[in-house]
């Protein structure tokens, strides 16, 4: 997130940040949805199913996870950020019953192009 000198001063003075950056962020989000032709319900369903699939292999922090559409330069990307829970020793928690042979830790970030 880009910050300007004014943003920082506003933050220090606990004032509301200038509205242009809010406008920019809201627009980027709404346009990603508009351009993808995905309805909110479909996107929600896809998010749920992606989480379910990933949760079959690793224990993820469902509350912290986010699946969103991001747009840059008229290209839209599906970005999933799914933090994996760790054991006390710092190891990634793999799900026991399935895929015992799976040793490689799963990627936490997963990008897919989708114009």
């Amino acid at each position: 997130m880009a910050m300007t000198l004014r943003d920082i001063i506003n933050k220090l003075l606990r004032r509301q940040r200038a509205s242009a950056s809010t406008a920019r962020e809201r627009l980027q989000l709404v346009l990603a949805h508009d351009r993808s032709d995905l309805s909110t319900e479909l996107l929600d369903q896809m998010r749920k199913e992606i989480l379910e699939v990933v949760a079959k292999y690793v224990e993820i922090d469902v509350d912290e996870g986010a699946v969103s559409l991001e747009t840059e330069d008229r290209m839209t990307a599906l970005v999933a950020n799914l933090p994996i829970k760790r054991t006390m020793s710092g190891q990634i928690k793999l799900k026991e019953p399935i895929n015992k042979s799976e040793e490689n830790p799963q990627e936490t970030e997963d990008k897919e192009q989708n114009s």
Binding site: A18, S19, A20, A23, R24, D73
Partner: peptide, 18 residues
């Protein structure tokens, strides 16, 4: 308003709409 960052800047609009 643009100078006060209370209006989307020219770059904001051209970047978003490409």
């Amino acid at each position: 308003m643009m100078a006060n960052q209370e209006m989307l800047s020219i770059d904001d609009v051209t970047d978003i709409l490409a």
